[in-house]
Amino acid sequence: MTSRIDARFAALKEEGRPGLVTFVMAGDPDEKTALEVIKGLPAAGADLIEVGMPFSDPMADGPSIQLAGQRALKGGMTLAKTLNTISEFRKDDLDTPIVLMGYYNPIYIYGNEKFIADAKAAGVDGLIIVDVPPEADDELCLPAMDAGINFIRLATPTTDGNRLPRVLENTSGFLYYVSITGITGAAAPDPGKVAASVARIKESTDLPVAVGFGVKTAQQAADIGKGADGVVVGSALVSAIADSLDRDGNATAETPKAVHALVSDLASGVRSVKR
């Protein structure tokens, strides 16, 4: 079965450029504004959209995304509302792939089976669940695959030749290469090293490889994009939201504009790459 994610990466290959994968947190700073932000991403140049599911204890995230989750939770965001955000987005957009990204516990409490069914119905195409390794595939990954949702695995600089086959085993859609050992929003990766790592991974898989962690500017997106099928930007977008808020932490008229302007700029970066 060809998923929206497969179709999008095939189209990007045709175009001869890397895709821009944008991350924002559902419900940040409030449900309505976040939906407006997400709805405007494709027009601003996002090729795939990752939507964060807020969690109280985001162990793999740096301060920017931690704060985004806290803003969302403070505004009353829940997993059910996140799924609702995706349903709303799908009313106007049937092509842009949506990947939910987050941590296991809220899903586990929602109920794995119910979550997969509701996510599918909402129009979710993929899942990245940071703290569910291949060792626990039977819990969430395999049921998601059966339902036609791609389960996207992270590979990291610590994923050596012994580990890589295990990581790739049930991965579909694309592989997310975490370019540094560290948390989201950390220092920028070295494009040369990243390209070499991506090339190494590509010897073992035909899946597209998107690279993330530490990419903040159009230039970095272009540099990283030269050696990858996609470039993920998260913390920079989330910081743009944070910077646009008023003194009480509420959204302003500038909030969606600020994010979309940055996405347009980043999109010019990936579009400058010609293969």
């Binding site: 940071v130 060792e135 626990a136 992270l154 990291t156 600089p157 610590t158 580990r163 990581v167 050992t181």
Partner: peptide
């Protein structure tokens, strides 16, 4: 072997930490 005590335990960590 997978670190379970009944349904409890296990190793639910980010991939960066799995090899460690």
């Amino acid at each position: 072997e997978a670190g379970h005590f009944g349904i409890f335990g296990g190793r639910y960590v980010a991939e960066t930490l799995m090899p460690l």
